[in-house]
């Protein structure tokens, strides 16, 4: 099993280096370009969202990301110590509504749910823990 653990502050500039580290893991694990493309989309939606919204002020909090690959199965875990927030608790976006009228973030988490095999949220102590599996 290949695994990467990252820890970074909630700054926009942290997204690309974190993404690149994780994509290297997927590539080194022999995943297909199609799978890597979809995993990148999952990563962007999750990480940009948590960087932007987990904490009130940029650079004041820490985000932990771990990723592991076993065969073709990928597990991602994103943790933050922001206010309790369940991104899965919101309603699915109204796909008939004009895209600009849809709530920010709703579209991204919808894409994640459609592309992943499972997405779960848990509040553990003072942490938000979001787990995504893709097989």
């Amino acid at each position: 099993m290949n695994e990467v653990r990252l820890e970074f502050p909630n700054l926009e500039s942290e997204y690309e280096p974190a993404r690149d580290r994780l994509i290297d893991l997927f590539r080194d694990s022999g995943l297909s370009p199609e799978a890597i493309g979809e995993l990148e989309l999952i990563l962007e939606e999750l990480l940009v969202n948590v960087i932007s919204y987990a904490y009130d002020e940029p650079g004041t909090g820490t985000i932990h990301v771990s990723a592991s690959v076993q065969g073709k199965a990928v597990t991602l875990e994103v943790r933050d110590r922001g206010c309790a927030f369940d991104p899965l608790g919101r309603e699915a976006p109204d796909l008939d509504a004009d895209i600009e009228d849809r709530p920010i973030g709703g579209l991204g988490i919808y894409l994640v749910r459609e592309l992943a095999t499972s997405v779960t949220y848990e509040r553990v102590g003072d942490e938000n823990v979001l787990r995504v599996e893709r097989r």
Partner: peptide, 9 residues
Amino acid sequence: TYISSAGLR
């Protein structure tokens, strides 16, 4: 080669 929700918007 790639589009995310930000690109869709």
